[in-house]
Nucleic acid binder design. Structure first.
Lengths: 115, 115
DNA sequence: TATCGATATGTATTGCAATGCATATTAAAG
DNA sequence: CTTTAATATGCATTGCAATACATATCGATA
């Protein structure tokens, strides 16, 4: 077999809590964009997903994590918004770090394969 | 944050060739079942997927891998079937090994996270 | 050359998740 | 109070991928 010409490995990781999906790449990106933009609505628009879906994801994350990752801020002259909690930012950071380590690990291991 | 009570990490890996998906967990299982049962049709039935989908997966794998992973065997008193090539078995083995190593790596790294 | 069961492929149907749209609710700020 | 824009939620629609079904093709064997 031609040794891995043009071959590479890709991956996804997910954090689970009580056997329910808590966080994946998409949800982490959503959290990050909520953090920067200040609302679920604008984060959803940036990611070209429906507000409804974004809201549901956020809601699931909050329900499942055992402590809110984001917090709504209703009211105010600009109608309110949503902020990412300290716990949410921790989660983002942990996920990103593990992704990075995994990328390095897999590239290294993939090179060893006789394929 | 309560330190990872009930938390764990899950993952999936894929082998790509020229930026096209070549192999994932499902396709590897399909290959394995083709190997044991001797036909795409019975492998598909075992996995409760449509024959059409199974055939398409096999076809894509063969087209993309740059060397067949399975080979059809038409004719014969039992109408023929499909066998997994040496290259196909190599691929199955490599994928399984990398999955196993990744499982170990991720469990270890996940424990280190302050989450 | 008739038989066999699997491969190969077109077309119609279905199932379900994502989207779109409408609207009620919220609470701080002016 | 009124205004504001975002959250929260019901319901109809849509889009797409998987399924279902029908059928043509293949080639070793008997």
């Amino acid at each position: 077999m031609a040794r891995k010409t043009g071959m590479n490995v890709e991956f996804r990781i997910w954090f689970f809590k009580n056997d329910e999906k808590l966080l994946g790449k998409g949800r982490v990106e959503l959290l990050e964009r909520i953090g920067k933009s200040g609302s679920i609505a604008s984060a959803a628009k940036e990611m070209k997903m429906s507000y409804r879906q974004a809201w549901q994801m956020v809601n699931e994350m909050n329900e499942r994590s055992g402590g809110k990752l984001v917090e709504k801020q209703l009211g105010g002259k600009d109608g309110g918004g949503t902020v990412v909690t300290a716990r949410g930012n921790e989660a983002i950071k942990c996920f990103g770090e593990l992704e990075k380590k995994t990328r390095i690990f897999l590239d290294k291991e993939f090179k060893k394969l006789k394929i």
